[in-house]
């Protein structure tokens, strides 16, 4: 089951379900997300990046069909689901006095017994992912005392500790400093390449995306496009991102020129 994680979307639409109908944010979209790839979700504010991640992780309803390894999310048990996917969202109100070790350990929840006892292997994996994310010196610190960037790395370590073949990250690089932005994305990339995991992350950092991502899910103008990362450099796609934003026309032009000159 876990050997070939692939996400398949058929006539997939994100949006919000009301009592009677579905208010869609995008037009129908079909695609197959191959395994072992780093896939970036790119879009402007309010385009639906977070909604897409929530839909893909079956937290909210969507239109169309979604398959993980050929099975719908609903057909997985809660335990199987947690063994298949892990997810880091943007907002966590962590309770006071929760230390970093405990936060990372929460990723192991599904692998522990009903009492939540951490085994040798659990502890090893927690230490390993803490080390990978460079937060192993913070283990005894309280999560709420960390900086936003450190918090983000701890949350990613939590997802790494869960060791699911498919991972979703909502803006993992948002609060990170310049070196860590690149380092974290490179880490995700290496997990995809070496451990055959599939990682979907949303980001505003086009620089990072174009350097590491294999594929890009571009949400623009109520459409989802699955494109090759190289294609994102194309003027047409950048134009898609800039077009339709409520910023002055002259500024759009300036931005467009800035991007094409850079390439």
């Amino acid at each position: 089951m876990i050997s070939s994680p692939v996400i398949e979307l058929v006539d997939f639409q994100i949006g919000y379900r009301s009592k009677t109908d579905f208010c869609s944010l995008t037009s129908p979209f079909s695609a197959k997300l191959p395994k072992g790839k780093l896939i970036a979700i790119v879009g402007t504010n309010g385009a639906g990046k977070t909604t897409l991640i929530k839909s893909l992780t079956a937290q909210i309803s969507y239109n169309g069909s979604l398959y993980f390894n050929g099975k719908t999310p609903k057909s997985y048990s809660v335990e199987q689901w947690a063994e298949l996917i892990s997810l880091v969202q943007t907002h966590y109100q962590v309770q006071a006095f929760t230390n970093v070790f405990d936060v990372i350990a929460k990723g192991r929840t599904v692998h522990t017994n009903w009492l939540g006892h951490l085994s040798e292997k659990d502890n090893e994996l927690i230490m390993l992912s803490a080390k990978k994310l460079g937060v192993d010196h913070l283990l005894e610190r309280y999560f709420n005392q960390l900086s936003d960037g450190e918090k983000q790395r701890v949350l990613v370590a939590m997802a790494f500790a869960q060791s699911s073949p498919i991972m979703f990250f909502d803006e993992p690089t948002a609060y990170l400093d310049y070196p860590h932005k690149f380092y974290l994305t490179a880490l995700m990339k290496s997990l995809c390449e070496n451990e055959d995991r599939t990682i979907v992350f949303s980001s505003h950092d086009l620089e990072v995306v174009t350097k590491y991502a294999d594929l890009v899910l571009l949400i623009a103008q109520k459409q989802i496009h699955l494109i090759d990362t190289k294609a994102l450099m194309d003027a047409s796609y950048i134009n898609l991102l800039i077009e339709g934003q409520d910023i002055p026309e002259e500024f759009k032009k300036e931005l467009y020129e800035h991007w094409t000159k850079k390439q």
Binding site: V78, H91, T109, W114, Q162
Partner: peptide
């Protein structure tokens, strides 16, 4: 209470979505 302790510890993360961690 003992049955819920694992879940209570997860609740301290401050997210209401626990399914992704394998908790109903």
């Amino acid at each position: 209470v003992v049955l819920s302790l694992k879940g209570l510890n997860l609740l301290t993360l401050g997210t209401s979505q626990l399914e992704q961690f394998g908790i109903k």
